[in-house]
Nucleic acid binder design. Sequence first.
DNA 1: ATCATAATAGACCGATTAGTCAATCTACCC
DNA 2: GGGTAGATTGACTAATCGGTCTATTATGAT
Lengths: 196, 196
Amino acid sequence: MTGPHTDKRQAILDTALDLFCERGFHGTPTSMITREAGVATGTLFHYFRTKEALIETLYLDIKGEMREALYAHIETKDPIRAQIQRICANYIRWGAENPRKFQFMEQFCNAPQISAHAHEEGMAQFTFVHDIVRRGIDEGVLKPHPLGLQFAMFGASTAAVVRLILSRAGREAIDPLMDEAFDLIWDGIAAPAADQ
Amino acid sequence: MTGPHTDKRQAILDTALDLFCERGFHGTPTSMITREAGVATGTLFHYFRTKEALIETLYLDIKGEMREALYAHIETKDPIRAQIQRICANYIRWGAENPRKFQFMEQFCNAPQISAHAHEEGMAQFTFVHDIVRRGIDEGVLKPHPLGLQFAMFGASTAAVVRLILSRAGREAIDPLMDEAFDLIWDGIAAPAADQ
DNA sequence: ATCATAATAGACCGATTAGTCAATCTACCC
DNA sequence: GGGTAGATTGACTAATCGGTCTATTATGAT
């Protein structure tokens, strides 16, 4: 799987991730990507038809990786609270361990440079979170507010915690902050009598 | 205040706001801005020294405007809960009524194209929110979590509500959603006994 | 009427861009 | 060793970019 083939392609993707984060899409010339990656300009366009195709591949790769991370150790049989806590912890840990990829998603998850089709495909990966929230509402564990509202607040709050952790960059352990954050989030979305 | 002077300068700012939102900073040529605004290239560089100066002016203008909106009808003597509800409502209404400006702030509030100095100056406008949250924690009305965590969650949740409203673009009244959203946010950050 | 200053215009310039292309290199099969 | 398909290269191009410059017009004070 790691031949001279995969190496250069991956070097281009890795370099592009860094540069797009730091300088934006149009702010990063393809010539800069290839120079930093140590390949020729032609090599980039051998693997990716256009610059847009490159960022779209990057976007879908990372979104898939993120989905895998969020989904880890989720047991459908567990109570809703435990499942949501798991997702929350998975998200925060993934973000803290992959700051570049987290930053990339924040910057480009609504960017016009990425086709609407890719945005849809990326979103579709997270229906399992939607389903869990819906079940929580149906079972009366979560407040009966609109699903979209609950989902949006849950996602936004968790992302905010990651941002906060990254801005303090390793100056404190993340585990206690993670638990405190879940308490805040849970109290917001859970029905009064149901939080254990 | 509205001479032929202010007109063209404002036309450039208005057009730049739209185009930067739709296409990003580097994705928007100055020539496109001037064409859409109906002025000559020279006129843009008469009012703004560089393209960066243009976006920085836009950024600080909007951030100031936003601060004014958030601060409206805040009475220091009111209870903390009422003040936070007011800010929350002000924010959501401003975002719903100024979708372009809201989108611009989301996209560029951490963008590298805007100087660190301008970012600082922009942030400094919102210390009054910080102060209210701190007072809430001191008085025991809000949970004793770290100020940064409380502040981040409050801001992120409110922004998420605006995003939700904008994505549904006028298909429902915003007032009920606004109240529901505040309930969620408040239950998350408030101390158990203190939500009234 | 005169003059100074600011507003406006758009042709123009050097630098930079995304993407091409013909040529070479590498790896592997027979 | 001969052949083939894919990987790799970097000089090259047509187009576009941010910004300059000079010229012209509008405004207003005296």
